[in-house]
């Protein structure tokens, strides 16, 4: 120990580079979709890796490193952005309201027409619609539909039961679709009702 300060540090650095850095892409894309702003995503990613490196000895070897890194990023995100927006934590309500929402019988365009309409949207519209989702729904939708994680991994990342992953995905995609239709209306792809 008395001779090995620099050796220890470089071992730490090596271990970190080997285990944590391969997950940069997963975290970067999450940051990008959460903030919908490349600069903020850059800051968030850098902050996450710096914190992870400083607290590397707190990481329990053998546990899910992706989940550990994800939680650091989520906390950093909350510290940075939720303070400003004060987004209400309304999941409990939103999940109850609407989960068993009545099936709409109003006159909406049939599915195939809707698909055509949504196909006209720009990637930017899709990105903004995702970024507009309430935080908890946004998180599961990003992890599942963009990052292709399994339900089990999402449950571990967010620390919620599998059933909640399922219900948040259902509700999140529904909200997303409504938003996408609104964008399409604004852009004139759908006749206003």
């Amino acid at each position: 120990m008395k001779t090995g300060t620099s050796v220890q540090t470089s071992e730490k650095q090596r271990a970190f580079e080997k285990e944590a850095l391969p997950h940069t892409e997963l975290l970067y894309n999450y940051a990008l979709r959460m903030t919908n702003n490349p600069e903020d995503a850059n800051d968030l990613l850098q902050e996450t890796f710096l914190k992870a490196y400083r607290f590397w000895d707190k990481y329990e070897q053998g546990t899910n490193i992706r989940a550990w890194l994800f939680r650091i990023m989520k906390n950093s995100y909350i510290n940075r952005y939720r303070k400003e927006t004060k987004e209400p934590q309304s999941v409990a309500y939103e999940e109850v309201e609407g989960f068993f929402s009545s099936i709409r019988h109003e006159s909406v365009p049939p599915n195939d027409l809707q698909e055509n309409v949504l196909g006209n949207l720009l990637d930017d519209d899709v990105a903004s619609a995702v970024a507009d989702l309430p935080e908890d729904f946004r998180t599961v939708v990003i992890l599942c539909d963009i990052e292709s994680l399994s339900y089990e991994e999402i449950a571990e990342f967010v620390d919620i039961p599998l059933g909640t992953v399922r219900s948040r995905l259902h509700r999140g995609r529904k909200l997303l679709r409504d938003r996408l239709m609104e964008y399409a209306k604004k852009r004139g792809y759908v006749p206003r009702d």
Binding site: Q46, I146, R173
Partner: peptide, 30 residues
């Protein structure tokens, strides 16, 4: 509709590669 929404998202919101400059920043930070 839900299946289509997922497909749309998957097709239109792809995973983006980490810019090399950002990758470098993280490494030099460490």
């Amino acid at each position: 509709q839900e299946a289509a929404t997922k497909r749309l998202l998957h097709a239109r919101a792809h995973m983006l590669p980490v810019p090399p400059s950002l990758q470098e920043k993280i490494c030099s930070q460490i």
